[in-house]
Design a protein around this nucleic acid. Structure first.
Lengths: 255, 255
DNA sequence: CGGAGCGTTCCGCCACGTGGGACGCCCGGT
DNA sequence: ACCGGGCGTCCCACGTGGCGGAACGCTCCG
């Protein structure tokens, strides 16, 4: 080990191992985990046994998978729980009124994390998953949140690498900044096939009493079947109503 | 520490600290965490800082709370993800048809863990929460699952302590065994105010191709407003349809 | 029949988790 | 104004337990 290098701590390694599980995975073996994490097989194996002992992982023969205990603890995370519980009825109304798929997301670093998704029977198969991530600058919810976020956080994203998720993603920093200004004025963000081909979306921020964004609501559908100027007022209204409801409650700590 | 006792390992302590957060909590201080876990304050404080470094916990001033990363990982847990994704449309239909609150739960030890809940506007405020636990013998979903579970697992619960959750909970082992036999014959379990006053529920197991229960669906409502013999066929039908859909797919590892 | 990949076990080394104690701070009661 | 209790934070000598290269037995496949 090169001297001066703060080698990864034990806890970092644990998180690395847990994060190595992908959504589509079921059980993984010690060798596969070692390959994904870059850790010695012996180390991963010992750790997997210890984690299984605690219930964080579950043994299935020789393989190991994420345990139900992680799901239980994950549901108690305040950042999603409080917002999700308050938003659910508004999301339900929004789906009813627009007959489209409704999303609720929060910002985490340079990406959004989807907290809840209400799919609609006839709608497209979207790549978004509850608990999944997506680059903030390439989604409606992401831009809606960024438009009402502290300048330093926005700067960090604008000056960072703006990945081209689809052919129409906004990757020019100047263009993105100007779009955020427009969103700040109008209160609604749009995504015209920027996150995926054939998919459009209108999004509006959920605001704390101090004006900063806690998250965002959105409505998504096929570009041919959904008129953005039609659903935009509905999304905006729902987000305003939710913001007001959150402000009234003594919900306290969301940010 | 009594000699011979294998003092709790570091990982056990980490899980203890994470489990110390209750659903209604937001941020907790080092002293409060030390009190709840029984660990030395110094130890908890150091651990909290390390966990915050990994993103598992988030620092909020001097306090610390469960981090969004835990929610993300929790959503990847296969036991809930595969079942929940497959069940959602059937649950939605069931709510539509019965106009009552629909639950999906799995068995974990002596308790059920709620995986998904579709509330209905006019329904009662139930104590159940997604990711929450409840004694299996005192709920409709619990009894539905137990009726189709391996005898050793059932024995362990029947012979264990059958807590009296409400005044009408089944606490007599013999009575419970006989009820499970009836459920096995009819395919539907009932809960007549056994888990809470004024609440009734009909539940039916989601079965793997081998006949063992993966989880259960239920419909709950006010005892005066919902007729059990009316919703029972609907729950049973939905559960059968879901079981068949899971059997057809190469979903693989659910148990 | 041989090699590749797997899960599992071993063991000497030393990083790092340990926890009692101390410190400065902000309270709220007197 | 004073003081005591609770808080977050920090320190440091101690020794536990994580470390990981290596080796073993196994199964599968060409």
């Amino acid at each position: 080990m090169p001297p001066g290098t703060a080698d990864e701590s034990f806890l970092h390694r644990v998180v690395t191992v847990l994060s190595a599980f992908r959504p589509e995975d079921d059980g993984l073996g010690a060798a596969e985990l070692a390959r994904r994490t870059g850790l010695p097989k012996s180390t991963v194996h010992r750790m997997a046994l210890a984690l299984a002992e605690t219930g964080v992982l579950e043994r299935r023969g020789a393989e190991v998978r994420l345990g139900l205990k992680l799901f239980e603890i994950g549901q108690r995370v305040p950042r999603q729980r409080v917002l999700r519980d308050a938003a659910l009825p508004y999301m339900s109304d929004l789906r009813e009124a627009t007959r489209q798929t409704v999303h609720l997301a929060v910002l985490e670093g340079h990406e959004v994390v989807y907290v809840e998704i209400l799919p609609t029977p006839g709608g497209p198969d979207l790549p978004s998953r509850i608990g999944g991530r997506f680059p903030a600058h390439a989604t409606g919810v992401g831009k809606a949140i960024l438009a009402f976020s502290p300048p330093p956080a926005v700067r960090s994203i604008v000056d960072g690498e703006l990945s081209r998720v689809s052919g129409r993603s906004v990757v020019a920093p100047g263009l993105l900044v100007r779009e955020l200004e427009r969103i700040r004025k109008e209160g609604v963000a749009f995504d015209r096939e920027e996150s995926g081909p054939g998919i459009v979306c209108a999004a509006s921020p959920v605001l704390a009493p101090d004006g900063s964004a806690l998250g965002a609501l959105s409505v998504s559908g096929w570009s041919g079947r959904m008129r953005l100027h039609h659903v935009a007022p509905a999304v905006h209204t729902a987000a305003l109503a939710l913001s007001r409801a959150l402000g009234d409650r003594p919900s306290g700590a969301l940010r």
